[in-house]
């Protein structure tokens, strides 16, 4: 059950972030940070099936984390889910064609190690 939840969390977080990134790139770069832009952005989001699916996936991940925390300790839950950073980096490189070189690999790896140490 624990590992099933870990798999659901990793899968939904990864899918959510990838869908949101791809969907937001389709909407186009947000130019300024005014209230009007934020409202227009909300309109663009509710019209984007990709971003809506991404938000739904992140919501599933959020509730899965809540259930995992109710049956497992934080020191199990956080390391198990933090590793999804590395999966996301790999998929962003090959699916989203982002330019991932040693700095970004090292950054993702350091964040995973740091998050594990932080929740020890």
């Amino acid at each position: 059950m624990k590992w099933l939840l870990v798999a659901i969390i990793a899968l939904s977080n990864t899918a959510g972030d990838l869908l949101n990134t791809a969907g937001m790139k389709r909407i186009g770069p947000v130019e300024d940070l005014s209230l009007r832009t934020y409202l227009l952005l909300c309109l663009a989001i509710v019209r984007s099936p990709m971003v809506l699916a991404g938000i739904a996936a992140l919501a599933i991940g959020f509730f899965a984390i809540m259930s995992l925390l109710s049956i497992a300790t934080v020191s199990f839950a956080i390391p198990a889910t933090a590793s999804s950073y590395l999966v996301e980096t790999l998929l962003a490189k090959y699916l989203l064609k982002e330019d991932v070189r040693w700095r970004r690999w090292a950054a993702a790896g350091l964040v995973v190690i740091g998050v594990i140490l932080l929740r020890w």
Binding site: T21, A107, L110
Partner: peptide, 17 residues
């Protein structure tokens, strides 16, 4: 919303770390 706005102009592998 700000996180989504950031993803509209930056890479996921930049935003996450």
């Amino acid at each position: 919303i700000s996180d989504l706005a950031l993803l509209s102009r930056a890479d996921l592998t930049f935003v996450l770390p």
